[in-house]
Nucleic acid binder design. Structure first.
Lengths: 156, 156
DNA sequence: ACAGGCTTCATACTTTAGGGTGATTTTGCA
DNA sequence: TGCAAAATCACCCTAAAGTATGAAGCCTGT
């Protein structure tokens, strides 16, 4: 309640305080020539305090708030009863032909070596494709890739 | 663009300014006894600048940064088909409860370690279950197991 | 012609999966 | 109650999967 009041009226409060300080300084200046002893130190201290405050205010005002991103998982219901693959979802993944082929063979339970054999490429190539494909699907393992691809309707 | 430059080089800028101020102070100290007139005003100005800086530094350093939370919705693909598992096929496989549980988690793309965590058992236990389960399904790999189980209707 | 994506492959290294074996403890049920 | 099946775990070792990095050749569109 109090904090929210301060929050909503921060601007006004700050300006009000600034005004008060100003008036105080002016008043003090009138007395300047009376209290001549130690006036320098007092003045210096005052300035220090005031401008420290100003600095803090400036920093708080100007510093950009750090952004914190919260990822909320939003369910997307997909039915793949129709064995028509979801081309839309496929496009979004940005998957290349070869990567899709590898993914399909993965889904059939083939090992990387077997996939390499079927596609007439080296084991390393299959690994490269699979690594890329994992990135694009945002997964870490082939089993996850297959699961996600099926949920998305990329695979039947 | 400019603000991002300031952001990424904040440290450097702050140190640079600090250096400049230091040099200025030193230079000023040399002239202190010459320019005795107006030294008060100069001193005051200096203090103002320095303490403004101090205030900014204090605020930036000590004040906990305001966190601005950005909520990003991340789609999670879910298939909502109520599948009737093929109990008959399940019986024939002779799978135990635990083995089925492991199989289900495998199908979700979990690693053996993750499965172990979910089932509160050791990694070795999961391996034992998976090995048995592979035998019963007559497959060699987890990916094959998942594929076959789905085809058989054991898994949704 | 050149930038950029795709495909291909390599090397080296780490992590995870899987196979084989054995052992102990639960537990369901005859 | 006793026993077989199930569940648990350990150790050791090999195979496969995955990570990281670099690089070369090939298309494609600007």
């Amino acid at each position: 309640m109090i904090s929210s009041f301060i929050k909503t009226h921060k601007q006004s409060i700050v300006y009000g305080l600034a005004m008060a300080v100003m008036l105080f300084v002016l008043k003090w200046l009138e007395l300047k020539f009376i209290i001549i002893r130690h006036s320098f130190e007092i003045y210096a201290g005052l300035i220090a305090v005031i401008f420290t405050g100003l600095g803090i205010w400036l920093a708080l005002k100007l510093a950009r708030p750090k952004e914190k991103t919260i990822i909320v998982e939003k369910p997307v219901y997909v039915s793949h009863e129709n064995f028509i693959v979801n081309d839309e979802a496929l496009q979004q993944t940005n998957m290349s032909r070869r990567e899709l082929e590898v993914l399909e063979l993965m889904a059939e339970g083939l090992s990387n070596l077997e996939i390499a054999g079927k596609l007439f490429v080296s084991l390393n190539t299959v690994k490269t494709h699979s690594a890329r494909l994992f990135e694009k699907l945002d997964v870490k393992r082939r089993t996850q890739a297959v699961d996600k691809a099926k949920r998305m309707g990329i695979l039947k």
